[in-house]
Amino acid sequence: MAKMQEPRHHRSFSITRLIRYGWVALSLLLVACHVDMYDQPRYEPYEYSAFFADGRSSRPPIPNTVAVGQFQDDPHFLTGMIDDQFATTLPFPLTADVMERGRQQYNAFCMSCHGLVGDGDGLIAQRGPLVVTSFHSERLRNVEVGYIFDVITNGLGRMYSHAARIPPEDRWAITAYVRALQLSQDATLDDLSPEERERLVGTESEEQ
């Protein structure tokens, strides 16, 4: 059988080559990046913004304004004050749930400095040089609950404000728990019911 050698036809060869290998480029196009839906033109909380001069997308509130729905007209609840006097009561009834919430929040926000029972010997205080006040002094046992709320809200001396991190209802729950700590650390045997005294004295004598 005769084999005929044709001279190469350059144009058609490059077209077949294009068709033969074009799919590689085509499939690359198909897997092309689709980052537009991954990173949509909106800000996530605290995301950097090139638009504002200070780079913050979360805008700080404008001074002397109140956000819609944020206005609350209850100075007792928000400041711990009634007619410029520290309140002596909680703004809502004290229940076991409130006390339990107070315990959890105290352990999260106060314990590292003030210690488990409020002696002022939390891990941070133990390492120093921060010296932390104990709750168990005559003066602090007799302050109004509104005062404790005010210390959490506005800070005092070397202690910073916690208002930005703890909402008011939780600050009140913590206040109640601090009061409970003060009572428990200042309790005498006479405060216990006869059965409780029995249990306590019983274990003590067992230990001896």
């Binding site: 909380p45 605290y46 352990n107 999260a108 926000f109 314990m111 590292s112 891990l123 941070i124 390492r127 930005a164 991190r165 703890i166 909402p167």
Partner: peptide, 22 residues
């Protein structure tokens, strides 16, 4: 130092965003 997550990520119980400490 046994600091609780909430001390710094304060909104984690209340909001979608966990919060980054200021």
């Amino acid at each position: 130092l046994k600091i609780d997550c909430r001390y710094c990520h304060a909104t984690v119980e209340r909001a979608a965003f966990a919060g980054i400490p200021t």
